[in-house]
Amino acid sequence: MDWFQALVLALIQGLTEFLPISSSAHLILPSQVLGWPDQGLAFDVAVHLGTLMAVMAYYRRDLVAMIGGAGQAVTQRTMNDDLKLGLLVVLATIPAVLFGFLGDDWIERELRSALVIAVTTLVFGALLWAADAFGKRQFSLVRLGIVGAIFIGLAQALALIPGTSRSGITITAALALGYQREDAARFSFLLSIPVILGAGLLKTKDLIEQQLAVDWGLMALGAVVSAITAYLTIVFFIRLLERIGMLPFVVYRLILGIALLAWLA
Rank of each mutant, 00 (worst) to 15 (best):
A262I: 15
F124D: 08
A96G: 01
L160R: 00
L177C: 05
A259W: 14
T78I: 13
L127F: 14
D38H: 06
G125V: 15
A25N: 08
M219V: 05
R109I: 07
F4I: 15
Y58H: 02
A227E: 10
L144Y: 03
L19V: 07
I152L: 06
F101H: 15
L232M: 12
M56W: 06
L212E: 15
R181I: 11
G217F: 00
P30V: 13
D38A: 13
D206S: 04
T164K: 01
Q76T: 12
I255T: 08
D38L: 10
L122P: 13
T51A: 05
G178W: 09
A259G: 10
S31I: 08
F139Q: 14
A42Q: 10
A199T: 09
L177N: 01
G245S: 03
P95K: 05
L254V: 15
Q211I: 03
G148Q: 09
M79T: 13
Q5I: 14
I169Y: 04
S165Q: 11
F236K: 06
L260K: 12
K205N: 07
G148E: 06
V147H: 10
L160T: 05
F134L: 06
G69E: 12
M246L: 14
L98F: 13
L91M: 09
Q180P: 01
A114S: 13
E110M: 14
S192M: 11
Q39P: 09
V251F: 01
N80E: 09
Y231A: 00
M66V: 12
A130L: 15
V224Q: 00
L15E: 00
